[in-house]
Design a protein around this nucleic acid. Structure first.
Lengths: 147, 147
DNA sequence: ATGCTTGCAAACGGTTTGCAGCAGT
DNA sequence: ACTGCTGCAAACCGTTTGCAAGCAT
């Protein structure tokens, strides 16, 4: 379920490996998209019905601190979490209408990052979730306005 | 305090002009940077001690709906509000260490917007507040890491 | 006079925390 | 055995909402 080298890495770093933590780590690890704490909680429930949402939050914070998970703020107030074994950040576009998350072309991200450093000496260091309208929803709105 | 043409515009649009609304509008109008609801509330207090925070929120929503104010999500969970008479959005950089907000060079914003349309057919339609480190704080961190 | 707006207070939802007991090392 | 993690429940904080009274029109 979880790669052996990850397990040894965790053990070597003196972190306690409780079943809760492993289930939660597995959930984010296998997730295709970013999950909210509640979603992760729901995913872990079947295997461990007693896990509390507080433990999910605590574990996600821990995973964030040791650099395995990146917290992402979505369109609503809720935080989402994404597995992030290697250090490379990749950014998202979030449609405010249908909620779809697209990954931004790394080249575009890189261009933006360099432009900001050049113009403002500012260093992006966090995940970005840029709100807007995806192709489909933008099209729908055009139709609606036309009618 | 508030431009006459703005007053007439509001009146013409059939909006009720209560003293609370005028004070709140004045507060965001004169603010140099984006303010939280609490900050606006504090600014209005001296002139109108009875104003409730709920009224501030309701008024800010109203101002947002009629397009005079843009809500901006900062680094913490709190919303910030910025006066926005003309329709042009301008984006910000938010330093996660000292909290400073810089305005992004419009050219950089425009480049990003076109790149996203070109690559992903995605239309940014919201204010952006990009998190990272400003020049000063990035410098401090370099020093800290070196020692 | 009408009905939108306000103040008050209570609810809300996501997240955090205090604490006693449990479990990984 | 020690220490830190977990479950539970309650607190927290920004924001929203229901309601009766008030006020702009």
């Amino acid at each position: 379920m979880i790669p052996a080298e990850l397990m040894t890495w965790l053990r070597q770093h003196g972190q306690r490996l409780t079943p809760q933590r492993l289930y939660i780590l597995a959930a984010v690890h296998h997730a295709v998209e970013c999950l909210t704490a509640e979603e992760i909680h729901a995913l872990v429930q079947p295997s461990m019905p007693t896990v509390d949402i507080a433990t999910v939050y605590r574990t996600l914070n821990w995973l964030h601190q040791i650099g395995l998970v990146a917290p992402i703020e979505g369109i609503d107030g809720r935080m989402r979490y994404e597995y992030h074994g290697d250090g490379a950040l990749h950014h998202h576009l979030v449609c405010r209408q249908c909620g779809t998350m697209l990954r931004i072309d790394p080249e575009v991200s890189a261009e933006l990052a360099t432009a900001l450093v050049r113009q403002h000496a500012f260093h992006l260091d966090h995940h970005l979730a840029l709100p807007g309208r995806c192709e489909a929803c933008a099209g729908q709105n055009d139709e609606a306005e036309r009618s």
